[in-house]
Design a protein around this nucleic acid. Structure first.
Lengths: 353, 353
DNA sequence: CTGTTAGCGCCTTCAG
DNA sequence: CTGAAGGCGCTAACAG
């Protein structure tokens, strides 16, 4: 089974022989060049069909100056809806230009990230779109310089001289926090995956700024980070909500955090005002529907592909740095009721002198 | 910006010259062959680093018998969580074998599907994992024969002689429906994307079988199909639930259908018993938590990669056809209250003579 | 409009 | 353990 005794694939030479023309004429035909005698063209077409000839793009692209028509995309994890949506919009934009996408997940592992880039360079991708891990290997800036065309996504990195597209994380973090403050919350928890990520950190800065602007003091005990899964988040939130600790509201700084906080609410049978970051499909389905701040993933993907394509086409202008605006999707969760807790928190949280 | 004036990449010949050895010795070194003088090896390593040499895999793979170390995956849409999870598990299994994944979305478009396969053959992928559209172009079986190694996923197709992995859709559909029947529902709606899909159709057959076994008659008016998005589903469900039509419960035959039904519930402010097909991240978060029947996507991805790898390694045994068992995740939604509606439906539904 | 020649970067004989 | 010659499938000159 599985195809016949592995017949050797027909080559252009075979086609040329069958069609009684020279190799080069077949090449011209296959490459869609116009100046070909229709009669000969028909003969070639016939031979191609009969022999099931398929052009070998690998062979066609080894010559310097030729392109592989391949673009690499390195993200953290395709299974994360944020990245799968991104992948999709990049693929869409690339397809329009006839390019294929080699997508790979780094899983935030610096070593794997480096290895993937090397593999993609070995494939001679025409360009690379990359979401770098928070702590790439020290050789990363040098490696990046080897990439013919590069666009950095989502997380800004000023050690790399390349186009970049990020979201307005600080602005978004501010907006999210203001929403919660506006609902009367004073003790607002910040839940993020890792403050080492520039995105989460930006949102955290926004959070701090909004608190300060409202005259509220930030309590480090209300910050959850260093969590990798929504179950981690759920556990951490459950712990934070132990009796005696007053938490008025939650700012969940990415979709993973949102899911984790909601899981904790479900488990504890409670609810608090919450604003999430990054929209997610079920945000409108849960009770109450979750208000979120987000950037347009579709824009990010599409524009990164456009920037890359321009570079591949030889654009040599200085690096572009796009910042996508944060938009707020008001649903209901930011103004859920805040339980009144007159008793002072019994925690050791005021550790600052 | 964007790398310096496009310096030509170093080739093996350059490395050989710099290291004062022959081309072939460099080749041996790069390919990890053991019989190399350590002193010479060190000299080569030095030259490689100095010249930033990167092996050109495209050039290495044009020789017949050589592999591209590339595998293609064609799915319907990466942004769909079912497929992104699948992509992830395939990528994981492939990475262990050092292969890279070329993933592409067909969007259920037969023409695009054919085009993608052709593109992947032109890249000389070592193998292909494919979720075929419901109505592929007529040439598909012939095209499939050109693929060196092929695994068909999710939707069974007996016109193709290749390994396949599908879920037990009939069994799963039966189980889902039985759950609803067991909760006292008699008029159970079936919501599927398209009955032309073998998966949805299998689940539908299971639904019919379970109804028959329970002595219930299937009402065609309770079947929703031909919907492409969860918003379509929401609209259709909203319409189905118009006054006068009694619907006791919903069987949502894929994740898109589940989301659509839940949206409709939210919009109408009602609830009915529901069982979904395919698990989804927020299933446990909505109220009530959604009971689902599903197959292990991780298994499907991993095993398909394993089958493919075996074929690539020369396995010539007859095609394997795996059927993954359906598992039920009991949450709460299958026994939501059924509103009592004593008044007979006023619809023209009993069109069967 | 077509064919000949050379060579891309690498790997495979087969000698040394 | 190393090297020289030849060729993979294709495209770029440069003739005819």
């Amino acid at each position: 089974m599985q195809s016949s005794p592995r017949a050797r694939r027909a080559t252009m030479t075979d086609v040329a022989r069958a069609a009684q023309v020279s190799l080069k004429t077949v090449s011209r035909y296959v490459n869609g060049e116009t100046n070909i005698d229709p009669v000969i063209g028909a003969r070639i077409a016939e031979a191609i069909a009969a022999l099931r000839f398929r052009r070998n793009m690998a062979a066609a692209s080894i010559r310097p100056g030729q392109r592989s028509q391949l673009v690499g995309l390195i993200i953290e994890d395709v299974a994360n809806p944020f990245y799968s949506a991104l992948t999709r919009s990049v693929e869409l934009a690339l397809r329009a230009a006839g390019l294929l996408l080699l997508a790979a997940s780094s899983e935030e592992d610096p070593v794997r990230f480096t290895r993937l880039i090397e593999q993609l360079i070995e494939r001679r991708v025409d360009g690379l779109i990359v979401v770098a891990p928070s702590h790439p290997e020290p050789g990363w800036p040098e490696l990046a310089r080897e990439i013919p065309a590069l666009v950095i996504l989502d997380r800004f990195d000023d050690t790399i001289d390349a186009d970049s597209i990020v979201g307005d994380d600080v602005g978004g973090g501010t907006a999210a926090t203001e929403l919660l403050v506006g609902s009367g919350a004073r003790r607002i928890a910040f839940v993020g995956e890792a403050l080492g990520l520039s995105t989460i950190n930006g949102r955290y800065q926004g959070y701090l700024a909004a608190l300060a602007a409202a005259g509220l003091t930030a309590d480090p005990a209300l910050v959850i980070d260093g969590v990798r899964t929504s179950d981690d988040v759920c556990t951490a939130v459950t712990e934070l909500l132990r009796p005696g600790v007053q938490v008025d509201a939650f700012f969940a700084a990415n979709n993973l955090a949102s899911l984790g906080v909601l899981k904790a609410f479900r488990r504890l049978g409670i609810s608090r005002p919450i604003v999430g970051y990054d929209d997610f499909e079920s945000a409108a389905l849960v009770q109450p529907a979750v208000t979120v701040v987000s950037h347009s993933v579709a824009d990010m993907g599409r524009r990164s592909a456009e920037l890359l394509l321009a570079r591949i086409d030889g654009d040599r202008t200085p690096a572009h740095h796009l910042v996508l605006p944060a938009t707020t999707t008001l649903r209901a969760s930011h103004r859920a009721p805040i339980p009144h807790r007159p008793d002072p928190p019994l925690t050791e949280m005021t550790t600052t002198p």
